[in-house]
Amino acid sequence: MAAGPLLELAGVWKRFGREWVLRDVNLSLWPGEVVALLGPNGVGKTTLLRVAATLTRPQRGTVRLFGRPAGRLEAERGWLVYVANPPAFYRHFTGLENLRYGLALMERPRPERELRAALEALGLPPEKPVAAYSSGMRKRLALARARLLAPRLLLLDEPETALDEGGRAALMDLIAEVRSRGAVLLATHDRAFAERAAGREVVMG
């Protein structure tokens, strides 16, 4: 892995239709950093996370991850985990099946007992379909998946919403764990949470 920033956005502009959502955004995320994006709804926090995750291509500017241009990522994409809000899962599958297939397709298969243990540690029933999970349980399932994928760069979109106290504690553990080997970029409205979780805040809008 490169010794420079894990994520580097330089002069990024993004528009949807005629509306510019991001204007000349510059941001670097270094190993060991947790950065919070703060700002009201519609200011472009999610768009910025999606650009950083290489899911949305900006009209102008450059995005580099792990020292490589975003368009040239291959194996490095496996070092990145993006947790959307709300997180997406296959509703007809159980929590266990979602983890099993999710990890297999990321080429990180884990033994079934580890997957069960990860679910049970977060109080999630492995054999229950995700359709029957509450929104808080889906958030916890996303945390379990992120932990098992052991990313170097973790992108979190409003991760604290829908989580109870236990879920927030698990979230803080995950952030600390990823920070020890990489970096975290999160978007939130909650300034108190941002102050608790992040070492640096970027206010948008």
Binding site: T54, E74, A88, Y90, G102, M106
Partner: peptide, 18 residues
């Protein structure tokens, strides 16, 4: 359709490799 219905297309696009 299965990806669109579950909003999971992004997860597939974030898998490593070509």
């Amino acid at each position: 359709a299965v990806e669109v219905e579950n909003d999971t297309l992004d997860d597939l696009l974030l898998t490593p490799g070509s």
